[in-house]
Simulated scan of single mutants.
Amino acid sequence: MNPDTTLRKPYSPKMLKQGDIGAWPVVGALIAIAVIFSTLNDRFLSAQNLTTLALQMAATGTIALGIVMVLLLGEIDLSAGSVSGLCATIMTIVSVKQGWQPLLAILAALLAGTAIGLLHGLMLTRLRMPSFVITLAGLMGWQGLLLYLLREGGTINLPFTGFISKLSDTWLPGWLSWLVVAGLVIVSGGVGLLNRTARVKAGLPAPPAWWPPVRAGGLGVLLGAAVLIMSADRGVPLLLVIFGTLVVGFDLMLRHTAFGRHVYAVGGNAEAARRAGINVARIRVLAFMLASTLAAAGGILAASRLSAVNQQSGGSDVLLMAIAAAVIGGTSLFGGRGRAYAALLGVLVIQSITSGMFLLSVDSSVRLMVTAAVLALAVAIDSLARKGPVR
Rank of each mutant, 00 (worst) to 15 (best):
M1A: 14
L7I: 12
P13A: 13
K14V: 04
M15R: 15
G19Y: 06
G22F: 13
P25G: 09
V26T: 07
V26D: 10
A29N: 08
I31D: 10
I31T: 13
A34S: 15
T39N: 12
T39Y: 15
N41K: 10
S46K: 00
S46E: 05
A47R: 06
Q48T: 10
Q48D: 14
T51K: 09
L53A: 08
M57W: 10
T60Q: 12
T62D: 08
T62I: 09
I63D: 01
I63T: 06
A64V: 05
G66W: 02
I67F: 09
L71D: 05
L72R: 11
L72C: 04
L73C: 04
G74Q: 07
I76P: 07
I76R: 06
A80I: 10
A88R: 00
T92M: 05
I93K: 02
S95T: 15
Q98A: 13
W100P: 03
A105M: 02
L107G: 01
A108N: 05
A109G: 00
A112P: 04
L119E: 03
T125K: 02
T125I: 02
P130G: 05
L146V: 05
L149N: 05
P159D: 08
F163R: 07
S165A: 12
S165F: 09
D169P: 01
W171S: 11
L172Y: 07
L172H: 03
P173G: 04
P173I: 08
G174I: 11
A182T: 10
G183K: 12
G183D: 07
L194Q: 10
L194I: 10
R196I: 04
A202N: 12
A209F: 13
W210D: 13
P212S: 08
P212M: 08
V214I: 14
R215V: 06
G220W: 03
G220M: 07
A225P: 09
A226K: 07
V227K: 03
V227E: 03
M230L: 08
A232L: 13
D233V: 02
D233W: 04
D233E: 10
G235Y: 06
L239W: 00
L240I: 00
D251M: 07
L252R: 10
M253W: 12
M253D: 01
T257V: 10
G260I: 03
Y264Q: 00
Y264G: 03
A265V: 07
G267I: 06
E271N: 13
A273E: 00
G277F: 12
N279D: 15
N279E: 12
A281R: 05
I283V: 15
L286M: 13
L290A: 14
A291Y: 02
S292G: 05
S292I: 03
T293L: 14
G299Q: 01
A302D: 13
A303I: 03
A303K: 00
S307K: 00
A308K: 11
Q312W: 12
S313K: 01
G315A: 11
S316M: 12
V318T: 13
L319F: 09
M321P: 00
A322G: 09
A322T: 03
L333F: 11
L333I: 14
L333K: 06
A340D: 09
V347R: 02
V349D: 11
Q351Y: 13
S352L: 13
S352N: 03
I353Q: 07
G356L: 00
S361M: 09
V362S: 10
V366L: 11
V366A: 12
V370P: 00
A373L: 14
A373I: 11
A373T: 14
V374C: 07
K387L: 14
P389D: 14
R391T: 15
R391E: 15
